[in-house]
Amino acid sequence: MEKLYNISIFTENSVGMLNRVTIVFTRRHINIESITASESEVKGVYRYTIVAQMTEDQAKKVVGQIEKLVEVLKVFYHTDGEVVFQEIALYKIPTKMLANRFDAEKIIRAHHARILTVESGFTIIEKTGHENELKGLFDALVPFGILEYVKSGRIAISKPMKTLETYLEEMSNN
C-alpha cells in the first residue's frame, strides 16, 4: 500500500549530491512531493528531507540505493507517525483589506499565525504547521484577496533517539 514516507538523508557536502539522490527516485518513477536541504547538527554533514508517496517495499529499496552512493552517510525512512514534522508558509495580503475587515485579527489568532511586516500596500503573514493547517489559513484568507502564497517543503525529525554521531561512530568502527 502506498503512503507518504519521510526519507532523511545524511550526506557529505559535495557538489551534485542532490542530483545523485534524486536520480534514484526518478529511475523508479517516484514523484518527490517535497524536498529540503540544510546542514545538520554535525558540521559538514548535510541533511535532506524528502517526502514521497510510495510503498514500504519501494521505500526500503530506495533507501538502499541512496545509501549505496559513495558520499551518503546514512538514510532513514519514516511514516508520518514516526516523525515530528513542520512546514512554513507566507501569505501576502493587501493591507487595506486587512484593515477593512472586522475578522482579520480573529483569523490570525485562531490560526496561530503571525504578521511579519506591514507595508502600505501589503502585509505578510507567516504560519508554520502541517500542510492542512497551512491550507486552512489559506482558505480563510481567500476573501482578503491573496496576492502571493509560498510554502516550504517539509522538515522532519524522527522520534526514535539515536544521534547521528552514534551512527558515524558505528560506521567508523565497522
Binding site: T11, V70, E71, V72, L73
Partner: peptide
Amino acid sequence: EIRSYNPSPK
C-alpha cells in the same frame, strides 16, 4: 578511507 563508504563490511 571515506567515512560514508564501507567497501569491506564486517
